[in-house]
Design a protein around this nucleic acid. Sequence first.
DNA 1: GTCGTATTCAACCTCAAGGTTGATTACGAA
DNA 2: TTCGTAATCAACCTTGAGGTTGAATACGAC
Lengths: 114, 114
Amino acid sequence: MDLEPDDDQLDRAFLALADPVRRRIVARLSRGPATVNELAAPHAMSLQAVSKHIHVLEQAGLVTRTRDAQRRPVHLAPEALERLTAWIDRYRLIHERRFRTLDALLTPPQEQEP
Amino acid sequence: MDLEPDDDQLDRAFLALADPVRRRIVARLSRGPATVNELAAPHAMSLQAVSKHIHVLEQAGLVTRTRDAQRRPVHLAPEALERLTAWIDRYRLIHERRFRTLDALLTPPQEQEP
DNA sequence: GTCGTATTCAACCTCAAGGTTGATTACGAA
DNA sequence: TTCGTAATCAACCTTGAGGTTGAATACGAC
């Protein structure tokens, strides 16, 4: 599994989630695939605009598309979400471990939580 | 702990990470605080540009700043990173749980989507 | 006070993100 | 074949992100 995506992929994925419309789309898709029309319904904007948002999510690898007659159902691609948490957690944990180490060095020997 | 940040905070935080320069800054800060000059050194751009990047990270809640004479050390704010993984994981897990349920209901042992 | 260092403020430029509307393609149904 | 539905393409507009340079501010050292 490629858990070290290149800069460009991370750029696109984080940028894709930096928009409330696209986050709502992701939230909706977490409950199952949907068509463009279904995804557009709750949003007060043109179908074309929503179509563009989906395109952004697709380029970021966050969703995939299949074909069903003239419909193009959109599916969540959870591996991409996983890569994002992997990136974030990597540095979050480095930071936390460093903090614990400092604590261990600076504080008199004492009870530590598991 | 507020693990349900409003749209605006999520916008800013995801947008902040959607830039390789800012991600490198976060990576650097995971190993400890640093001044603007130190953060700018590895980047082939003006100090002012890096200062702006730091401002973006600060507005997103991802870093905080202290004062030390004329220096303004930048510190990582790991809680903000935690909020991001919380958002992502929420929908990733909804999706996965749904998938497992569907699998249990629908599949005789067989190939589905990759 | 004056000087050097650290950082920000301000004005400016360029380009792409996110929206609009109108035309076009792709497909199933009748 | 024609019609209706689903979705995309294309042209356009506005705004803000990310960079530049030059001036201003804040502080410690001398």
